[in-house]
Nucleic acid binder design. Structure first.
Length: 587
RNA sequence: GCGCCCGUAGCUCAAUCGGAUAGAGCAUCGGCCUUCUAAGCCGACGGUUGCUGGUUCGAUUCCAGUCGGGCGCGCCA
């Protein structure tokens, strides 16, 4: 609806331009929802933006623009208000058309085409396989997965990526920790490795290693990376393909074979992380192993390319990137004096791989404590001199999560030791509440996760509030069947003018916002907008539900109300699906 | 010291690339169930948007400064 008004205004401006009334071409004006009914349904600021250039008072311009609007069935009334706002009041027909559209498009309502089928990579979680996923990863998973769903609904071809740091010192610490447990050494023992992982899960890994267990996981449709590589490998784009993403590792049992212990432990923890994510409703398309960047020579390739472009130098026995040339605070070491590479070089190589695999947009979701790596990776990509835009990839950072229960902060998990795990959250609050709570706040503000509130089955809890609205419509449907009331949707949609009063109207207005919300949430990378919106839609519905009986004797009125209730249910279901939250039929 | 994020009602948070009278929920107080689910609805109370300037028709939003909180500043990842 907003877009339709924007088009009408654009046409009016063009007409004024052709008639010589306006010299300047149309600026970037906005059509937006009003806050109060008195200002109409939509308002536009174009007259105020044009006033200065045109040398005319904004209210005069507004009158001229209104006079130039083409005939249409959308607008019932236009007013000029305040400093020069153009306020639009829409016809009943406009709202009814939107409701018809909802029921016609069904599960597709709210989906857009702005992505035009282009590829976007959304990378998130990307935890080291050294322990269970914690609350920070849970927030990352909720944000990343919801963004992916939003992009998908906006017409993008979405690939969810998970980058495994399966090489380096952390992994070595993991192997040493498991080995210590195998030898019966406890975390408090003086022989325990200095930076060892102390959680109970290490004991489980050690137990399975000793018993000779096999850890395996395939991914249902096989080798994703190869598949995508084929799709992306067009013209001169040569794709770098990491190896297969499934794994199968049988424990070596030998307590002195640190390599075998390492491989087993990594696979063991990947399996646990995979299982937790799946329980959280999150699946990835691409699992990218850091180790593959070494084995396939991509790390060397990046370093050589940067050196060839003259963006590196040697000093103190190390090879440095001139990161300051590309906006970073200081130059960064790429190759250490011991000949190994710093972590960010494979990071650059990984993002290069995304670029070469054809992602028009790449979103990297990170905890804010890693924001330092952002400038580094972008600097590295710039230093390659291959035309990657300065602001590519895009980053979404999330701030810390504090978990509260019984009025106190929860910090400890038995299994992981020093932090609360994703599994803990799901166990305590349930899948739906956990996903909703983690997505409902803007990602760059700190989040307090109140377990007691998330568990509450009362109106305190926004998740149940939204789901309850959905269940109520289902209940109305059941009542109709029980009372043998016939509902003819086709006929009902012809008589939506039987909907009277502001309660039903408010519901229609809320419903019509849904496509705008989906688009804004994806464009701005702000999935919390959708969570907030659904609460408002559910609110408008509950008010209407309490104010008016749906299943009344008057057939026309009844059908119109049921149709609107169904449309509400459809939008709630579509929105909840994008959040990965269930839409129950009964509660 | 430098960089990034945040600061809005007692609490948890919104506010549509700068819009009109800053909104919800919780908490507190008071109402509504012989009627489709009361997991709901209605009402009341609650604000110098941390502070000071600037930009303009208009600032919670942009800029500068300042105070407070978080995170990061390694030849760790």
């Amino acid at each position: 609806m907003k877009d339709a008004l924007h088009d009408l205004l654009q046409q009016a401006l063009q007409r004024l331009h052709q008639d010589g009334v306006l010299e300047a071409s149309a600026p970037d004006f906005v059509v937006e929802r009003t806050r109060t009914r008195e200002h109409g349904d939509f308002a536009c600021n174009v007259a105020m933006l044009l006033a200065k250039k045109a040398g005319r008072p904004p209210r005069d311009l507004a009158a001229a623009i209104i006079a130039a609007l083409p005939a249409n069935a959308l607008i019932a009334k236009v007013e000029i208000a305040g400093p020069g706002f153009i306020n639009f009041f829409l016809t009943d027909t406009a709202w009814h058309d939107e409701i018809r559209r909802v029921l016609h498009e069904g599960a597709h309502y709210g989906h857009g085409k702005s992505g035009a089928g282009r590829a976007v990579g959304v990378e998130f979680v990307s935890a080291n396989p050294t322990g269970p996923l914690h609350v920070g990863h849970a927030r990352a998973a909720a944000i990343g997965d919801t963004l992916a769903r939003l992009f998908s609904a906006s017409g993008w071809k979405v690939y969810r990526e998970y980058y495994y740091n399966d090489a380096g010192a952390q992994i070595q610490n993991l192997a040493l920790s498991v080995q210590a447990r195998i030898k019966g050494i406890e975390p408090d023992d003086p022989r325990w490795p200095a930076d060892g992982y102390r959680g109970d899960y290490i004991r489980d890994v050690a137990r399975d290693y000793v018993s000779g267990a096999t850890v395996e996981a395939g991914h249902p449709t096989g080798d994703y990376n190869r598949e995508y590589t084929r799709e992306f490998a067009k013209d001169d784009v040569a794709a770098a393909a990491p190896e297969a993403t499934g794994y199968r590792v049988t424990a070596g049992k030998d307590p002195d074979d640190l390599d075998a212990i390492r491989d087993f432990a990594v696979a063991w923890l990947r399996r646990e992380q995979d299982a937790d994510l799946r329980a959280f409703g999150v699946e990835f398309d691409v699992y990218f192993l850091e180790s593959s960047l070494y084995t396939e020579g991509q790390v060397l390739r990046v370093v050589d390319r940067i050196a060839a472009e003259g963006h590196s130098y040697e000093a103190d026995g190390a090879l440095w990137l001139r990161a300051t040339e590309f906006g970073d605070d200081k130059d960064r070491v790429m190759r250490k004096s011991d000949g190994t590479y710093t972590y960010f070089v494979p990071d650059v190589a990984y993002h290069l791989s995304k670029w070469e695999r054809g992602y028009k947009r790449a979103i990297t979701e990170l905890g804010a404590d890693h924001h330092g790596s952002l400038a580094r990776v972008r600097a590295g990509l710039q230093a390659l001199d291959i035309g990657i835009p300065k602001d590519w990839p895009e980053y979404v950072l999330h701030q810390m999560v504090t978990v509260m229960k019984g009025g106190e902060e929860v910090k400890i998990s038995k299994r992981a030791g020093s932090y609360v795990t994703l599994r803990d959250l799901i166990d305590m609050a349930g899948l739906d509440a956990t996903r909703y709570f983690l997505i409902a706040r803007k990602s760059d503000s700190q989040l307090v996760f109140d377990i007691d509130l998330a568990r509450a089955q009362t109106n305190d809890n926004p998740v149940y509030y939204i789901q309850y609205a959905h269940a109520r419509v289902c209940s109305v449907e059941r009542q109709m069947h029980e009372r043998s009331i016939v509902f003819e949707q086709h006929d009902a949609l012809k008589h939506l003018d039987r909907l009277q009063g502001h309660h039903a109207r408010d519901v229609m207005v809320e419903i019509s916002r849904f496509p705008e919300i989906v688009e804004a949430a994806a464009d701005n990378r702000e999935p919390h907008l959708l969570a907030q919106y659904l609460r408002e839609l559910a609110g408008a519905f509950h008010v209407w539900y309490n104010a008016e009986q749906f299943l009344v004797d008057d057939e026309g009125q009844r059908n119109a109300r049921v149709a609107l209730a169904y449309a509400t249910r459809q939008v709630l279901a579509n929105g909840l699906a994008m959040l990965g939250v269930s839409a129950p039929q009964t509660m």
